[in-house]
Nucleic acid binder design. Structure first.
Length: 291
DNA sequence: CAGCCGTGGAG
DNA sequence: TCTCCAAGGCT
């Protein structure tokens, strides 16, 4: 089975099985799509729905967000995780307001220059919002291709040149078709060709899948790095920032001590939050979200 | 560039 | 319970 057949089958599958996600609606603006892409970085779809709806209602344009205090963006981020994304989204909105006439830029290089926009997110915005032809290589697409074309259960930790070359072979020539393939292959990875328990019986391309043909061999590459969380600085930062988010006024050192008793780690994490711009000093032993 | 950066749900 | 991992980006 050739690549164009794989593309055709996956796109047809998508037309029937795609989830109804608000940022995919016809009236979704590039900004709404951009917000969804920031929130979806390392965060599951079902957890993004609610915050996304609130966010785009409150800040329907990049300028609306840019005109708000950065701390409000951090507060509205809630418990989505990786709150630096909220800050970068605010910074990106500011850049769009100041340098792009308030409109999300169409050019891939302009997109890449925005804070928090890397190769994946730039390609995703250009593809989903502006229907351009780009390689949208997220973890889902990488897994689909590693199985279908390489017979491997998982892709390597970071994309290689060879992997990109392979992915380009699947990318249709016509931009609209390429955009459909991008979203469809991502959806297949999210719903069927999943990391944990793939549903091969529901897959439209098992007959083209090397991994399936070889009996779904287990991952034999380098051990996948676990993350760990308890007691880490990430947990500490999260606990401190949660205190900040829950208060409309500056919080005290005592408030932070209550949230994380261990002093040296608390101090280190508070300093890192300040360095990141997520927290700012607000007077003697007082701390607040940024203005 | 390997390590870091949150959080919560599923198996 | 514990492990895995979810539309990455940055340094």
């Amino acid at each position: 089975m050739d690549r164009s057949t794989v593309v055709r089958r996956v796109v047809r599958w998508y037309d029937q099985e795609a989830r109804d996600l608000p940022w995919r609606h016809r009236d979704a603006t590039p900004w709404m799509i951009m917000v969804s892409e920031f929130m979806l970085q390392q965060t599951p779809v079902e957890r993004v729905r609610g915050p996304w709806a609130s966010w785009v209602e409150r800040w329907p344009t990049p300028t609306a967000l840019a005109d708000a205090p950065a701390g409000e963006a951090v507060r509205a981020w809630g418990r989505l995780g990786y709150p630096r994304r909220a800050l970068r989204l605010h910074q990106a909105a500011t850049a769009i307001r100041d340098h792009h006439d308030g409109q999300v830029p169409r050019g891939i290089d302009d997109l890449l220059a925005l804070p928090g926009v890397g190769s994946y997110t730039a390609a995703a915005i250009a593809s989903f919002a502006f229907r351009q032809r780009h390689l949208v290589l997220d973890t889902n697409v990488r897994r689909v291709l590693s199985r279908v074309a390489q017979g491997r259960a998982h892709p390597d930790p970071t994309p290689t040149r060879a992997e990109r070359d392979l992915a380009v072979e699947f990318l249709p020539t016509r931009p609209e078709r390429a955009a459909r393939w991008a979203v469809a292959s991502m959806e297949l990875g999210a719903l069927v060709c999943t990391a944990r328990s793939p549903r091969c019986e529901a897959c439209p391309v098992t007959s083209a899948c090397v991994w399936y043909a070889e009996g779904r061999p287990a991952w034999d590459g380098p051990p996948r790095r676990g993350q760990g969380y308890d007691g880490t600085d990430r947990q500490c930062r999260g606990a401190l920032l949660a205190v900040l988010r829950s208060s409309d006024e500056p919080v005290t050192d005592a408030d932070l001590e209550a949230a994380w008793p261990e002093a040296s780690q608390r101090d280190r994490c508070l300093a890192s939050l300040v360095a990141d711009g997520l927290v700012v000093p607000a007077g003697d032993a007082l701390w607040s979200l940024p203005r």
